[in-house]
Amino acid sequence: MQTYIRRLSIAPLSFVTLYRIFVFTIILLLCVLTAWGYGFHPLSLTYMILSVSFGTRVGLEGILLYVTPLLLTGAACLLAFRLWIVNNGAEGQFLLGSLMSTWVGLHCNFSGWLCIVLAGLAGIAGGVLWILVPTLAKIYAGVNEILTTLMLNFIATFIIIYCVTGPLAGSFTSSPIIPIHLPLLWGNVHIGILIALFCVFILAWVSTHTKWGYELRVCGASTQAAHYIGLSVNQYLFIIMLISGGLSGLAGMLEVVGTVHRLQPGISNGLGYLGIVVSILARNSFLSLIPSALLIAFILNTSIILQTQQLNNAITLIITGLLLLLIAIADELAHYQYIKIYPKQKEI
């Protein structure tokens, strides 16, 4: 009998699940050990985190409010990943979306639904605008989108700082409170979460049940095959990147109009970067964005709870970074299969 390891070109779902459970266990153990090292009783800390996050209204509201933008930025990154594009600029698109919708909100003379719809369109336009330059550079000059989208994030931050200290200045480093509000569902949770879920369901349906979605998958699977059957990959690239930017911009609009109601430099809170983590966790399926966004929202919520216990909130970055690294490793390892081959008996 001979045993060796074989690499499969597509990782089986069961392997992936197994490895991911293993990853989550490792991270949980590391967290517990860290808390223990810092003098907390791990069990009581865990109990406290769970009971505040899920047992209190403020905790649940916090998680749902985090899920809303995370779903959209996650969907933006996941859509881009379909064509092997890393949309590193969800943060910048988020900021521009929030800026544009704030501007509309402040300059809209009439109130009500129309104004909210206009603000939403402005948010989407902001996001699209912010991904336009990287898209064109990618299509016409082949410039790597990872860097261009990322640099635009920093520029977007500076634009927001300029606006809140100049044209849109209200009180200290924030714009005035905008007069439009999204309708509330429960406590502070607004209908943004329904919009986000709707977007995710639509994307899931389009990508699995329509011709367009199929062609998109062909483009992602093999550029040459797409070319051979007469699909223009660049056209898909263009549309996909713009939609991706628009989704991030919409997330920014929901954050401003629904949650924060004013523009501030720190409005994005890294939700754009976390979109990448959410989309990696979702592993190429739009519906699984929901659990992965919930997980990241829980981690974010936990970081604030830890901060109230005087633990450093940089631990969120460590946990998400570690999660990303281990998931990347796990997804690769899931390709390997351990097989046994029995040598043929020689016929006599």
């Binding site: 505040v52 209190t56 403020v58 905790g59 916090g62 480093t173 924030s174 954050e255 949650t259 924060v260 501030q264 430099p265 720190g266 409005i267 809170n269 604030i304 709870i305 901060q307 109230t308 216990q309 005087q310 909130n313």
Partner: peptide, 23 residues
């Protein structure tokens, strides 16, 4: 008496204050 550093000027601050009150 607790002390919390580096509270950012964003919705994060509002959330933090709400959790503090909840605790």
């Amino acid at each position: 008496i607790t002390s919390i550093e580096n509270v950012p000027y964003s919705i994060q601050a509002t959330r933090l204050f709400r959790y503090l009150i909840a605790e």
